[in-house]
Write a protein that binds this DNA or RNA. Structure first.
Lengths: 181, 181, 181, 181
DNA sequence: AATGAATGAGCTTTCATTCAT
DNA sequence: AATGAATGAAAGCTCATTCAT
């Protein structure tokens, strides 16, 4: 079973947006990278670039939630989960090329409908935090502590990613657990 | 003595780039916001948008260093300086409009000369860290601890700002000291 | 069946380039003359003005070869062919407006890729000479003489056209056979 | 005694126009090549590019007349003068870089006042022919023959130069005497 | 569902020229 | 006489989108 045209478009878009931002990538570039003809976008994404961006962001969100769950699923302590997560992200960062950014930020902090996009970024980010919080509770933290720890992890993750990107150095992510937790 | 045309351009550009990113702002928009005619850009910035962006980033960097120094100048302990800094940034964030991003990231993680731009972002970011480190040492931290603390502060600052932006809530920055330090 | 958009563009461009040279004609002017909207160029000529110029030059080359062949096809002697050719060119010169130049020179001695363009002009010019040479041989000249005669004809043709253009006088072309052959 | 600013401008312009044509060279490029500041053009050439082009063409015309006179001054026969002239031009062509064109054509077949420019090109070209004619008569040709020979030489010269330019081969000029005379 | 053509607004940049000093 | 600043029209080109088939 081959990947659908729609998915191919969304994945290609996600990758490119992550590298250059929503406004830094043109539809032509996406179509070319996906190897699809010019007219084939508006069938799958009637509202054009906006829809494509939202779908790409949704994809990236699901991927991120999956990574978080993977990291904590096999963890015996919260601290272990944190460590695993950062190492997974460091690998992902290297795989994507060490100049990529957070897909959600790169896509949803721009765009023509700024408010709608930003609101969605908050939804995704808070979803990640809630997800982490769940794992923290499961691993024995109190509710109050779990909430704080989750937010703290999200913040560290974003900040480290930014520094890793500037320095093009995935170790910024690997060193995070001992630096911040 | 009035502000020079070149400075007016750079400041206007810095503000707009911070809101919408390098690729999200057109030169027309910048010129219009600065109240300047179309032709007046390339006299002061011969390489056009690129030069303008670099100058805007330099401006933003100097401003940030100034804010850091201000925050720590009157602090009795490192922890006090951290607290003051986050409160200053929260106010700045509100002043700029709660949807703006880090000017360095927004400008220097994009652009036509990706590598050159990114390298410069590293220089600025590491400059901030070094600046914080200096204050930490001055306020009694050991060198090893100071270096870690400074990096930790930078990471927190970037991460909090991102979350504040998504939620359009400057309190994310105000709550950072107790959450992370 | 109507002429294609691509052909219309190329023909219009050829005509205008011939009058004002590659750098003397803007794309707006070509589009307007062809009665086409602004965006319709890059679909057919992805590399823009460069591609359009190369296509226009190719068109002009084919036209010139056709004229040469026509002139010599019905000629009983080489000398007759020469005479017919100059008369045909004089008429063409009048038809185009007596201020036009050699399309190949006007297009291919300029342009952003100077070397590539100039190389192509050599190909076309030497093609004309080879074409004339073939007719000369067919009409009884020895190979050595034919080669010289062909080059001589090309040179005369270019020189006369230049003088005709300066004086805006097609008779410069009509008088060439007796003056030079 | 150093060359005047005005002359430096005109010579620089002549050289650049010859390479890229009137419309292919911008005033900025000329000023930069001449090492002169931006504002210094309109003092010497109140009508701007037009005046500069006319002066450059006048310069080139005088230079060409000088070369013709030099070639024939020491010639014992008209045929010798022709040969010397072509060899001088071949050297000049190499010196200028084998991609330059006739300065008069390159400057005066373009420009905003097309008619005025073209008329002047005719004046210059016919001046060259008259000049050659004078030498032909002095060297023993009849008046009728001299007029024809002069025009023939001019035509050959223009045609050969064009072919030499396309092939980037100064030998096209050197071979002209035996080919055409 | 799919697609090459068409579209015009907008992009960054360069242009020749004018102005104020 | 000399010059850096200013100017807006126009340059070539890319954009996201719509259309006709």
């Amino acid at each position: 079973m081959s990947i659908s045209t729609k998915d191919k478009l969304a994945w290609t878009a996600a990758k490119l947006f992550q590298e250059k931002g929503f406004d830094g990538v043109g539809l032509n570039e996406i179509l070319a990278a996906a190897g699809l003809p010019k007219g084939s976008l508006y069938h799958h994404f009637p509202n054009g670039k906006k829809d494509l961006a939202l779908e790409a962001a949704a994809l990236a969100d699901r991927e991120m939630v999956r990574i978080i769950n993977d990291a904590f699923a096999s963890a015996e302590t919260y601290r272990h989960g944190v460590s695993t997560l950062f190492h997974k992200l460091a690998k992902l960062f290297e795989l994507l090329g060490s100049h990529t950014g957070c897909p959600i930020s790169e896509i949803l902090f721009a765009g023509p409908d700024r408010n709608e996009f930003r609101t969605r970024s908050a939804t995704y980010f808070n979803g990640w935090i809630a997800c982490i919080e769940g794992h923290a509770i499961r691993l024995g933290e109190t509710e109050a502590a779990a909430q704080q720890q989750a937010e703290r992890l999200f913040i560290s993750l974003q900040g480290c990613w930014t520094l890793a990107r500037a320095n093009e150095d995935s170790d910024q992510l690997r060193r995070a657990p001992e630096l911040l937790f």
